[in-house]
C-alpha cells in the first residue's frame, strides 16, 4: 500500500473503454492503457488525432464512468482537479473575473487574484464578458480559472488548438510562467510534438486506436535551455526512438 501523502502520483490503469454506436457497432477506444505521472511533473499525452486522448482525459475528469480499470489521482494539499478544455468553456453570462471566482471553493472565493490576472495579461479585462474577448484572451481566462483553484492535478486538452501559431506560442510561454510559479502535477493532451517537447518533463506516446502506451520520452533538460537548437536535437532523438510518430 502506498502511503497517503505528498508523493502519491497520478496513476492510470484503464483496461478497456468501448463506445457503442446507436447502430450497435462497438468501437474499442482504449485498451490496456497504463501510465504514471510523478508529483509536480508536467506530462504530455501525445498521439495521433482520434486515438483516444480526449477519451482518456474525460475518464480522468470523472465525466465518463463507463470503462473498466481504475485510476488514482494525486493527493495531498487540495484534492481538487482543474481542467482546460479544447474550447475555453467560459460562462458567457458571467464576466471573466466571475468565471474564475465561481470555479473556486467557497473558502477561496474572495482570494486576491491580482497576481494571476497580471501574469496572464488579463488585468484590464476582469469585468469583460467572454463574448468581448478574442479566442486567445478567452483561453487565457480559462488558464486563469484552472490555476486559481490551486489544483492537486491539472488536465489540459489541446488548449492551444485552433489558435494561430504566434498566439499559441505566447500562450505556451504564459502557461509555463504560471505553472513554474506553482508546479502542479499536469497532464496535457496534444498531437503537436513540438509543443510537447517544449512544455513537458515526460511525453507519454500513444499508439493508434485502440490507444495504449507505445513508450515514454523523458525530457530532463530544464525548460529555459530548450532553445531552437536544442529543440531540433530533441526532435531528432524523439524521432529516432519513435519512428513514424508525429
Amino acid at each position: 500500500m502506498q502511503p497517503v501523502g505528498a508523493a502519491v502520483p497520478l496513476r492510470v490503469d484503464i483496461a478497456e473503454k468501448t463506445f457503442r454506436s446507436a447502430q450497435g457497432v462497438s468501437i474499442t477506444a482504449l485498451q490496456d492503457l497504463s501510465f504514471e505521472v510523478r508529483q509536480g511533473e508536467f506530462a504530455c499525452l501525445l498521439g495521433p488525432s482520434g486515438c483516444g486522448k480526449t477519451t482518456t482525459l474525460r475518464i480522468l475528469l470523472g465525466l465518463d464512468k463507463d470503462f473498466s480499470g481504475s485510476f488514482h489521482l494525486p493527493e495531498g494539499g487540495s484534492d481538487r482537479i482543474a481542467a482546460v478544455f479544447q474550447e475555453p468553456v467560459l460562462l458567457p453570462w458571467r464576466t471573466v473575473e466571475q468565471n474564475v471566482r465561481l470555479a473556486l471553493p467557497k473558502s477561496l472565493r474572495t482570494k486576491n487574484l491580482d497576481g494571476l490576472f497580471d501574469t496572464l495579461g488579463l488585468a484590464g479585462m476582469r469585468s469583460l464578458y467572454p463574448a468581448e474577448l478574442s479566442l486567445g484572451l478567452a483561453r487565457r481566462a480559462a488558464l486563469a480559472r484552472a490555476f486559481a483553484t490551486e489544483p492537486a492535478v491539472l488536465f489540459l486538452d489541446e488548449p492551444f488548438a485552433s489558435l494561430d501559431e504566434r498566439t499559441a506560442e505566447r500562450l505556451r510561454h504564459l502557461l509555463l510562467t504560471v505553472w513554474s510559479a506553482r508546479p502542479t502535477t499536469a497532464l496535457m493532451v496534444t498531437h503537436n510534438l513540438r509543443e510537447a517537447l517544449m512544455l513537458s518533463d515526460r511525453i507519454i506516446v500513444l499508439a493508434q486506436r485502440p490507444a495504449h502506451v507505445l513508450g515514454m520520452f523523458d525530457v530532463r533538460l530544464p525548460r529555459h535551455y530548450r532553445n531552437p537548437q536544442v529543440m531540433s536535437d530533441l526532435l531528432r532523438s524523439f524521432q529516432q526512438k519513435f519512428p513514424g510518430v508525429a
Partner: peptide
C-alpha cells in the same frame, strides 16, 4: 459542456 465544466470544478 457547461455542465461538465461545472462538474470538474
Amino acid at each position: 459542456t457547461y455542465a461538465e465544466m461545472a462538474a470538474v470544478y
